[in-house]
Amino acid sequence: MADADLPLLAQKTFNSQSSELQAIRQLVRELMEQQGCTEKICNDAIMAVNEACMNIIQHAYCGEPDGKIIIEILKDNNYIVFRLTDFGPPVDKRKCKSRDLDKVRPGGLGIHLIQSLMDEMEFVEPPPANGNILELRKNISG
């Protein structure tokens, strides 16, 4: 879990709408490029954050378009930390695991992709009222 006093590189709030995903990817790209990340590391982070935000839109908010997604991007030595906060019902963490990829079916790839692309993925202590906080960490030292 990232410490509260880690340097905050960026913070932005988005609505829980699929039309926001392009702006979310752009935010991650700009931040990673500012940090001098390689194209591959940059693309990995973009895909992982996009998948995580999709999960929030589809599962935490169940398509409800007025929910909020707060994205905080922090620096922790060689790691960039993406802290995603939503205010939907608490996620059942037991269900947040990669599925069997040998069973070919539409959907259910998000967690597998996030875990494949990032160095760490962890749900941390949620907001006081309701919601979830997911932290994704990416080592940018190459």
């Binding site: 995903l21 973009i46 895909m47 998948e51 999709m54 070919v104 539409p106 959907g107 790839l109 992709l113």
Partner: peptide, 16 residues
């Protein structure tokens, strides 16, 4: 330029 898991799901559905 970019395709996420929902786009891939559309391809899987078509394939099946």
């Amino acid at each position: 330029d970019y395709i996420d898991s929902s786009g891939v799901a559309s391809l899987v559905e078509g394939f099946q």
